[in-house]
Write a protein that binds this DNA or RNA. Sequence first.
DNA 1: CTGTTAGCGCGTTCAA
DNA 2: TTGAACGCGCTAACAG
Lengths: 348, 348
Amino acid sequence: MSAKGQPVTLGEVAKAAGVSIATASRAINGSTRRVSEDIRKRVQETADRLGYLPNLSAQAVAKGASSTVAVVVSDIADPFFSAIAAGVMRGANEAGLVVTLAAADHTPQNELDIVRTFRSQRPRAIILSGSRSVADPNQALLDEQLEAFASTGGKVVLISQSPSPFDVVELANREGARELARVLVERGGQRFGIVTGPQRLMTNRDRVAGFREGLEESGTSLETDAVVEAEFSRDGGYTGLRTLLSRVPEVDTIFATSDVMAIGAMTALRDLGKTPGKDISIAGFDDIDTARDVTPTLTTVVAPLADMGYRAVKLAIDPDAARDPQVLKVNTSVIVRESTPVRERASA
Amino acid sequence: MSAKGQPVTLGEVAKAAGVSIATASRAINGSTRRVSEDIRKRVQETADRLGYLPNLSAQAVAKGASSTVAVVVSDIADPFFSAIAAGVMRGANEAGLVVTLAAADHTPQNELDIVRTFRSQRPRAIILSGSRSVADPNQALLDEQLEAFASTGGKVVLISQSPSPFDVVELANREGARELARVLVERGGQRFGIVTGPQRLMTNRDRVAGFREGLEESGTSLETDAVVEAEFSRDGGYTGLRTLLSRVPEVDTIFATSDVMAIGAMTALRDLGKTPGKDISIAGFDDIDTARDVTPTLTTVVAPLADMGYRAVKLAIDPDAARDPQVLKVNTSVIVRESTPVRERASA
DNA sequence: CTGTTAGCGCGTTCAA
DNA sequence: TTGAACGCGCTAACAG
């Protein structure tokens, strides 16, 4: 039983059941189920008995279509992406699809290599999560790959920003940040600062721009020095905050363009002897799980990350494949927690 | 260019280059590279020009071996598993392998289904992360599947507990917890409590047992009521802590069997009006990223999660496949942070 | 070194 | 309804 051997093939099942391979195929997979019930039963039984499992690769070759969806993330250990991945996996599972995953590690070149490898797998769809970059020299090559993939019947879904020739699940970054700014002004914020990830990423651009708009609509503005760019990570939030405070020590409210950065910034604040949520208000974006477990709990913009991944799959397997590219806008909402208490206004 | 079409096949490349398919195959893949340099170059060029990408499924069928590693996790959104997955992906990437991922959602039945699906993919290896359960009725069926997979040339690596008929990457749960207990006693802990995940999971068993040992070796003991079992999650930590404190209000030091639980427990403490790291010490296990960002920063046992995933892949692609099952023990270390200050001993 | 032939495991025509 | 034959894209054995 446990001697080295080869997997059971459909042919062996067929022979053991005394039918042809074609019949066995129909009985087990039954694309158009036209096989007598007793035969079907007999074949199924011998298949079970022999422990037959269809060879997905062979099926893919024969059918010319696989049952795989390929997903690119920047970093699976980042809660932002792991939440998206969780949603994708749920959706894929419901659809009987297999998920293959690769991490681009924030490097456009890797992203390109990954997409090439993915194309070799002939997946049904490729889902790209992660922000688009502006003026990325690799972008053209990447688009070319995706275009080619799409032109051979593959589906491309971006969890990113429109406009795009492909389907896009797009988070309302700008609107979310704008609403957040309004809320923070309402709560008494007067001197604002921003710690943001690289501005070449559209996500950061939009969040900063939206926040700015929100401030202006509320009659407040942002000093030039009050926007600090750093790595789009926890450590970036840490260093970014230090830079910000050294430049503009009198800020009372800080917006970090992601929760991950905000959490790093909060730690930095404490290391500077200040108490986040008391000395200085701070808010993030995304509402990752950890946001409610840090102290103070973090005010943020809720992004339904898992849901976005789930919807991306749904878009990908949409039967109406010939339709025009679709943009699925995902709305956000602001959730106020302890990190942004109501501040008393300094008397004018 | 962007009209619907089929992917370029090796045959088309061969024809365009004026060589046979076999030659084209050798030129591009070159298992045993014995093809004249100029031909190789010409074929490669036409392949690039045509945008040819090998069909991995077809290769897998022809070779009888795929270039895929399949990974089972409980929940990819859990930082414990996403860290492991990150390591796996890095290792797979280095080896030119594709990673397929599935989430069992803490359900043994799902795990079984996933392994079956994975077997259909004929991956080179299946990596199972997540603790083994004791007395799991599905365990036999699962082992049967894995056994069958292994007997047909597949490699199985468990990130779990020995003993096992397969390769195992095993974290020193017991030893780590034991050392943690010693450290906590040294720092003045006297009345201990434990919030643990389900005891059917070996991970929790080992961590609790190890902690107990460490206490006993330090001349301390644990009251019966002081061990509370709850869900192995953030929320489990939250509810578990409340139960614990209602049963044994006078505990001064708490061990949660994972950082995720510890973080939930800390939040629960605060909701009860107590300050973690002051009124009550608390420590976790795993050292997930968040451990250093909560307040107070969390004392814990460092588990090199990403490294474990990485090593699991290395084991899986070990050329010496015929060797006996191997156990790779992974050591831990205790890192003391703010959540467990030195406590003054109550005078005896 | 190259081309021809025979598979790999499976789906799907086409007759029977 | 069933089976024989062919094809999917590719690799590997065998000749030349």
